[in-house]
Design a protein around this nucleic acid. Structure first.
Lengths: 102, 102
DNA sequence: GGTACTCTTAACCATATGGTTTAGTTTTCC
DNA sequence: GGAAAACTAAACCATATGGTTAAGAGTACC
């Protein structure tokens, strides 16, 4: 089960490694947004924002669907939970901070 | 508090985006290991493995200390917990899977 | 002191990333 | 049908990433 998400974890963590993309993810927790709405507050061109969304989409974090002449983005929590599950194995970790401290 | 870890989150997620580095992190949960021990099972040169460890170190995930002529690596759970905490805000997210499903 | 061991640094290469501007595509509206 | 809106695609550029080999530095051992 962990194995099946190996390549996906690569893309998920890589997607989350950029602050712009984390901002987009956070914005989408408030509900679906168009590409333009997501791009507006970002300090870059619409083209750059669209490419960030593509990265999030390929990581399975976001899905895009047409709505008239706009493109609506929605957050998909599954990949986020996979990444969270991987990290969870380390949350309770440093029960043994260091074998021999000095 | 989240702000202070912004640049750190970049490096943490970027570090975890590589399967080799996740393998190293996992190996270190069993206890401290030398660079050579970590590199041995990896399908790459020692130099490449060392560079991966440097990435983990700059992300604050791993610390390195000399022990004779070897270099011992230890896992540091703090950065992992920061990343986990960020993701945690999204674990309980899709309470609202989609405003209008169709 | 010299040799071998462990690891890092330096130089290099191919590909990916993150941004740009320009051009095209699709849909809406008059 | 023509113009504007909302994007996407293409081409380009600078820098980062992930690997290599070759060389250097620090430590241990005889």
């Amino acid at each position: 089960m962990v194995k099946s998400t190996a390549g996906t974890l690569d893309r998920t963590f890589a997607a989350l490694a950029d602050p712009t993309r984390r901002t987009i993810v956070r914005a989408l927790t408030a509900g679906p947004r168009t590409v333009g709405e997501l791009a507006a507050p970002l300090p870059m061109s619409l083209v750059a924002a669209s490419k960030h969304i593509t990265v999030l989409e390929r990581a399975g974090l976001v899905s895009r669907t047409r709505a008239g002449r706009t493109q609506v983005c929605r957050l998909d929590g599954a990949a986020l939970r996979d990444a969270s599950a991987w990290l969870d194995e380390y949350r309770q970790w440093p029960c043994r901070p260091s074998p021999r401290p000095a």
